[in-house]
Amino acid sequence: MNGTAEKFIANKDKPPFWLLHSLGWMTYVFIFTVDNVFFYREFNKLGFEVFFPLVLSGIFAALLTWPLRYIYRQCWGLPSGWLIVAIMLCSLIVSGIWTPAKNLAMWYFYEDFDVLPLIIGNPSDDFRWYMLFMSVSYAFFMIFVWSTLYFGINYHFRLINEKKLHIEAVRLSHISQIKMLRYQINPHFLFNTLNAISTLVLRGSKDKANGMLIRLSTFLRFSLDNDPEKKIRLYEELKALMLYLEIEKTRFDDRLTVKFEIEPQTEALLVPSLLLQPLVENSIKFAIAQMSSGGVIKVTAKCQNGTLQMEVADNGPVQDNAYLDAASDVKGQTASSHTGVGVQNIIDRLNVLYPDSHSFNISRGLTAGYHVKISIPMEYS
Results as ranks from 00 to 15, higher is better:
N2T: 02
T4D: 13
K7Y: 01
N11F: 02
K14F: 00
W18A: 00
F38M: 14
F39P: 00
F43S: 09
K45M: 13
F48W: 15
V50S: 03
P53N: 11
L56S: 11
S57N: 14
I59Y: 12
Y70E: 10
R73N: 01
Q74T: 00
L78Y: 07
S91G: 02
L92T: 04
A101M: 13
K102W: 00
M106Q: 06
Y108R: 02
D112C: 04
N122D: 04
P123R: 12
V136F: 13
Y138V: 05
M142N: 12
S147Q: 01
L149G: 00
L159F: 06
E162F: 01
H166R: 09
I175T: 04
S176H: 11
S176L: 01
Q184I: 09
A196H: 10
N210L: 13
R215A: 01
S217F: 14
L220Q: 15
S223W: 11
P228N: 15
P228R: 15
I232C: 02
A240T: 07
Y244I: 09
K259I: 04
P264H: 15
V271A: 03
P272I: 04
S273P: 01
L279G: 05
N282Q: 10
N282R: 08
S283H: 14
K285Q: 07
K285R: 13
Q290D: 11
M291V: 13
S293M: 04
G295V: 07
V296I: 12
L308I: 01
Q309N: 10
D320G: 10
V330E: 08
G332D: 04
H338I: 12
V341G: 01
G342E: 09
N345G: 08
N345L: 11
L353F: 11
H358R: 03
G365F: 00
L366C: 14
L366R: 10
A368H: 13
A368L: 12
Y370R: 10
Y370E: 06
H371Q: 08
I376R: 12
P377T: 01
S381K: 14
